[in-house]
Amino acid sequence: MVGYQKIEGRIPEQEWLSCGHLACPGCGEKLAMRLALKALGKRTILVVPAGCSAVVDGMFPHSSSMVPFLHTAFETTASAAVGVRAGLDVRGVDNVTVLAWGGDGATFDIGLQALSAAAERNENILYVCYDNEAYMNTGIQRSSATPWGAWTGTTPYDHPKDRPKKDMMAIMAAHKIPYAASASVAFPEDYVNKLKKAKAIFGTRYVQVFSPCPSGWKTPSDISVKVARLAVESRIYPLYEIEYGKRYTITLDPGPIAVKEYLKLQGRFRHLTQAEIDQIQHNVDETWEELLEKVR
């Protein structure tokens, strides 16, 4: 499936996020949430832990969300969402999507235990991880989603991150949940289609959406979508689905281009030597091959 194809599906016009939120210009998270609510519609309840997403919704008594929004403690995205689902169920409230909405820190790190437990029990929640590859709300520190070689406040330029990004998709797949997918704000139809598909499935559904962060990645605020597109084209962030932990499908592969094209736009990678960039290219190629193996 190489090259651009026409993606079926339309983005619903109805907005569930108002203007006046506090996100930075070019924020990937806000775009991801806006699209998610368009895909899921009115009968959605947001469960949001600490992170940029919690802050940029607005300060009390203001909120930019037009669907119910439950703030919860940093590590409790999944466990609180599970509780909401149980509460709705026992009160006979049907046809509601409980949307757990955590950052990569909330998901890959501090909330992993609760998420793993919910997935293992196949709790009926839709979990979206908006992945901006660091703790942005506290001012850009590494998370286990930070890629190899990246600068953050806790992985400074002379000591950038020296371990690869945690393979969260594989971890979720290992729970044999009905649906897991990676997505990107640069491919809204693909993302929206995945959310709509996920909405119709019972059980734990996981969608990990690539969400550029201009302030954290040291990029101009008007190229977020471009950066996100290059991540997919370079195959450093491939778009695929995993059903029941084994059925792998690559949903879109417009590439390949050299990963250097993606890296060079971002200040967080500006210290990388050619040898290091070659190393990243090698790792991307290898991981892509592994993904192709799983698809076959």
Partner: peptide, 26 residues
């Protein structure tokens, strides 16, 4: 009742909070 077989007390209370916010007696 709905019994949520959580993996820790931390999640127990988080789920209680979610369910209580949804209106249930927990």
């Amino acid at each position: 009742a709905r019994f949520i077989k959580v993996e820790s007390e931390h999640s127990a209370m988080a789920s209680c909070i979610g369910a209580s916010a949804a209106g249930a007696r927990v």
